[in-house]
């Protein structure tokens, strides 16, 4: 029986195992660890999904059944739909969240605009503004002034 292996060592050896670079003794220890450790076994299976590109030096030739034309003709099965449904749900969730945020923004904007105007009207109706009608437009000597109605005074 080979030496015992811990999780850290096993995960470090994923790539070497994939590339068949482990010695037979270490390979046995690696496989024994995977058989007894569901966490590392699952991690290896996740690793195996990207490993054909990441850790293999040879790309197999495309077979007839793998050609794009045939791939398009082959109907997909449900798991992909389930996976895509998750993505769609996520998309709908983000759209509805954006819509709610927009609605909240519109309500907030309406309140901030309508409330002060109401108060200002109340204030204006209660007291008449006192405007001093003296505006010197052309400097000293040619002083012309506006009255309260907007016309020139004298």
């Amino acid at each position: 029986m080979g030496c015992a292996m811990n999780c850290f060592e096993a995960r470090r050896d994923f790539r070497a195992f994939w590339r068949r670079e482990l010695s037979s003794e270490r390979r046995e220890a690696f496989l024994a660890h995977l058989r007894g450790c569901p966490g590392c076994d699952g991690a290896f299976r996740n690793f195996a999904l990207s490993a054909p590109v990441m850790h293999s030096d040879v790309t197999p030739e495309r077979r007839r059944e793998d050609s794009p034309r045939v791939r398009e003709a082959v109907p997909a099965r449900r798991p992909a739909m389930a996976y895509r449904a998750t993505a769609r749900r996520r998309e709908w969730f983000s759209i509805s969240a954006a819509a709610m945020a927009l609605a909240a923004g519109v309500v907030a904007a309406y309140l901030s605009v309508s409330a002060p105007v109401g108060n200002l009207n109340d204030v204006l109706s209660q007291q008449e503004p006192q405007v001093e009608p003296v505006v010197d437009l052309f400097g000293p000597g040619t002083a012309q002034t506006f009255n309260q109605d907007g016309g020139f005074a004298g």
Partner: peptide, 26 residues
């Protein structure tokens, strides 16, 4: 990948073009 032994997975990956395609999609 879900069901086979690690050794079988490695052996199968070498001859399956779709394993590469799926890895690229991932």
């Amino acid at each position: 990948v879900n069901t086979a032994s690690p050794e079988d997975i490695v052996a199968a990956a070498e001859e399956r073009r779709n394993a590469h395609d799926l890895a690229h999609r991932l």
